[in-house]
């Protein structure tokens, strides 16, 4: 009985020691948005519809991304190219292509399903807005503008914060690119543990 009371008391004290100790630990918080974190090399962010070098859309409106999407976030409606209005190289193009970025879980299955590498995920991640409707991205925002080149291929993603994200006060890398570990204290701890296990 007494022993249990003492043990409980000691346990409480240990708790106090723990919380007190954390007072002096360096905080891992990054002061976003003034400091931006380096994302992982294969980070999945906002989508982009690519073009061919001649300016034609890669998307053929086949809807495979739509059926691949586990979150039902994509809507595609196809239409037929006419000689007067030729959007994509084949017979068919996407008359309507919409992604609800609120529904999207950024798994990248659309990218995998795409037979023409038209839909890709860029590292852009800043898309907050005030209205739900504005998260439904249609072709006007998804398609690379004609003067914007062809877009980036899925296997050559730019490894850095896109320049068009606005002023970046300081790029603070928390990712150890070589090993992929998070370079904060927690990541270091994990790394140490792993090393200990290996050694």
């Amino acid at each position: 009985m007494l022993r249990a009371v003492i043990a409980g008391f000691v346990a409480i004290l240990a708790g106090f020691r723990t919380t007190f100790g954390y007072l002096f630990v360096k905080k891992p918080t990054i002061a976003y948005p003034s400091i931006k974190k380096q994302h992982a090399p294969r980070f999945h962010g906002l989508h982009e519809l690519r073009r061919y070098a001649d300016g034609k859309e890669r998307c053929i409106g086949c809807e495979l991304c739509q059926i691949a999407c586990p979150a039902n976030a994509i809507v595609v409606v196809g239409a037929e190219n006419t000689p007067a209005d030729r959007r994509s190289p084949g017979e068919r193009y996407a008359a309507r292509y919409e992604i609800d970025e609120l529904r999207c879980i950024f798994c990248g299955l659309c990218e995998e399903a795409c037979p023409t590498d038209a839909i890709v995920l860029t590292p852009r991640f800043e898309m907050s807005d005030y209205r739900r409707g504005s998260f439904v991205y249609a072709k006007d925002r998804l398609l690379v503008p004609p003067q914007g080149g062809v877009g980036s291929a899925p296997d050559e993603r730019p490894n850095g914060i896109p320049a068009d994200l606005g002023a970046v006060a300081q790029q603070k890398s928390t990712v150890d690119i070589a090993t992929g570990y998070d370079a904060t204290w927690y990541g270091r701890a994990l790394k140490t543990e792993r090393r200990g296990l290996a050694g």
Binding site: C62, E63, G78, A79, E80, R92
Partner: peptide
């Protein structure tokens, strides 16, 4: 029906 939809939709 040309290019209007896919059967699973």
């Amino acid at each position: 029906y040309r290019f209007k939809s896919r059967p699973w939709d």
